[in-house]
Design a protein around this nucleic acid. Sequence first.
DNA 1: GGCATATTCAACTGCATGGTTGAATTATCC
DNA 2: GGATAATTCAACCATGCAGTTGAATATGCC
Lengths: 121, 121
Amino acid sequence: MVELSPPQLDTVFHALGDATRRQMLRHLAEGERTVGDLAKPFAMSLAAASKHIKALEAAGLIHREVRGRTHLCRLAPGPLASAHRWLGFYERFWTERLDGLERLLREEDARRTRTPEGDKR
Amino acid sequence: MVELSPPQLDTVFHALGDATRRQMLRHLAEGERTVGDLAKPFAMSLAAASKHIKALEAAGLIHREVRGRTHLCRLAPGPLASAHRWLGFYERFWTERLDGLERLLREEDARRTRTPEGDKR
DNA sequence: GGCATATTCAACTGCATGGTTGAATTATCC
DNA sequence: GGATAATTCAACCATGCAGTTGAATATGCC
């Protein structure tokens, strides 16, 4: 919901830049999971998985509720929404592809002339 | 457009996990830029900026065209679109927030019963 | 209390990353 | 050809990260 600051975006995108952590998010999308549950699918120590979970938590991507001796994790969609909206800024570049800007650039390419809309240098 | 493999998503999200590189993408959204143009706003050596640009290039986020002794960079929106769609999978979690699943989870929280839809463990 | 379970902490290792500087490369200009 | 400009390369350094193992901390169970 809220606009994330650059350092927050750093940690969110960094957390997403690891297949293990993305897989954990997928599992959490099916429902809440304990640390042990999240670690099970991976061929790594529990301590290593715990670190991944802490990375997700630090990024605000999951919340943890300590229930007795188990820690229950669930998805926290806010930062995902922010990252999604951050990428949405560039949506015009792939929706206008091949009819708008992109074609202009390619034509410019062919002509080998100087930069057309890159005037704001 | 195309679905990115996990290693590709790794490099894309990793590239996005740095404020300098995200800023470079913002500049490229305004039009094509040379390596020197992209480096100018930052208080770092050209060599360092060059490495950032190579990271963006490796992730497929930009394309480079060597024109004489200058290298012209432009945005390549494909991987951004893929990352956007990857995040889109979780959209239901922030759109259904506070009326659907999220409320169920919170109610479950209050009742302190065992996991409701987390049956696929 | 005593034992097993769930999770983290601490210390260590190997490797990647982001930065530096100085030299090398390639192209343009005169 | 020689000087200048744009960019990369190579070597190096500090830091951070992902993984390990072994000990520590709680909690639950009998």
